[in-house]
Deep mutational scan, measured.
Amino acid sequence: MSIQHFRVALIPFFAAFCLPVFAHPETLVKVKDAEDQLGARVGYIELDLNSGKILESFRPEERFPMMSTFKVLLCGAVLSRVDAGQEQLGRRIHYSQNDLVEYSPVTEKHLTDGMTVRELCSAAITMSDNTAANLLLTTIGGPKELTAFLHNMGDHVTRLDRWEPELNEAIPNDERDTTMPAAMATTLRKLLTGELLTLASRQQLIDWMEADKVAGPLLRSALPAGWFIADKSGAGERGSRGIIAALGPDGKPSRIVVIYTTGSQATMDERNRQIAEIGASLIKHW
């Protein structure tokens, strides 16, 4: 067993022997301040990774656009098919120029040779490549099948209805392509620590998230040296922004954090800054 596999296998073990965790309302004060600064709703939840206990939450059962955070769930569904012998990570998928959609920095470079399922998941999570996500959605049967996968996990809230990039439209009061912070946090925890996926697939999923290259201005910008984070960000229309993450000190994750916002007129930089400040408060009061 590799060191990384050992780390993920012992996530519940280490967490069980940690000192009790206590909620700190100071972080919620910052979440509410972010709402004021952005002029928009902000949803927040913080779960203990081992027990699933909610440590703090704000608007945990209000719907927010998922945006690209759905790509972690998508690759979880792909990995479940791999575990069941219905898919192979090494299978190569070929596609054409007509398949390319807006923001496809990886797939646009491989029109000639195609990409493997493993490479597509890596591109979808680490670079948020939209064509990679659409190609992977095709392998599982489309958005409705991802929703069905989530329902089978016990998540009857999260739903995907459309493809990239239309799913980022974020129309107010439109339930399409949305989740709730509580539902997303619980589902992410199941994917990373539950028995739904094999140990190898859980490790692969967290490795992809740990290698995320496009979430630097968010929670990662607030992390002290030595902290662990595996995350996936999302951005959408109407001032929408979000991030889902597993993080913790001492090089291992111990909490799940989900943050979503929508309806702001603020710039992307300002949305990023507010999420980073929430992260800084979380870490300060850990």
Rank of each mutant, 00 (worst) to 15 (best):
R7P: 11
F70Q: 05
D174F: 03
F14W: 07
K53R: 13
A280D: 14
E270I: 12
R238I: 08
L218A: 04
L137A: 06
V8E: 10
A84I: 11
R202S: 13
A9R: 09
F70I: 06
T261K: 03
A133C: 05
E277K: 10
E169Q: 13
M66L: 12
K232S: 00
V8M: 11
A222P: 10
D212N: 07
F13V: 11
G279R: 01
G194K: 09
N130I: 01
G226N: 12
P12A: 13
L188H: 04
G226S: 11
S240P: 02
R159T: 09
Q203T: 14
E210P: 00
K30R: 11
A133Q: 00
M180F: 11
I3F: 10
R91A: 07
E119F: 02
L282D: 01
K190P: 03
G85I: 04
G239T: 02
D231L: 04
T267Q: 13
A222R: 15
G248Y: 01
F17L: 09
P165A: 07
S201E: 02
I229D: 01
V29S: 10
F70T: 06
E145Y: 10
L38C: 07
D99I: 09
I3C: 10
A34N: 03
F228N: 06
T107E: 01
P20D: 15
F70Y: 05
G242C: 06
I140P: 01
I259N: 01
L160F: 10
E87R: 02
I45P: 00
M209V: 01
L205K: 00
S233R: 01
P105W: 04
I171Y: 14
A148M: 15
S254E: 13
K232D: 00
Q4R: 13
P25I: 09
A77W: 06
P65T: 04
V78F: 04
V101W: 06
L55D: 04
G226A: 09
A276C: 11
A84P: 03
S281K: 14
M153S: 14
S201F: 04
A215K: 05
L247R: 01
E87N: 05
L89M: 11
S104Q: 02
D250W: 10
L137T: 07
M67P: 00
Q88C: 10
L10C: 10
R63A: 07
R238P: 09
L111S: 08
D155V: 01
V78N: 02
A15P: 07
A185I: 03
T69H: 07
G76N: 01
G39D: 12
F22P: 05
E237D: 13
T116G: 04
L47M: 12
E108Y: 08
G239N: 05
S254D: 13
T262S: 11
G236V: 02
F17S: 08
K213W: 06
G141W: 03
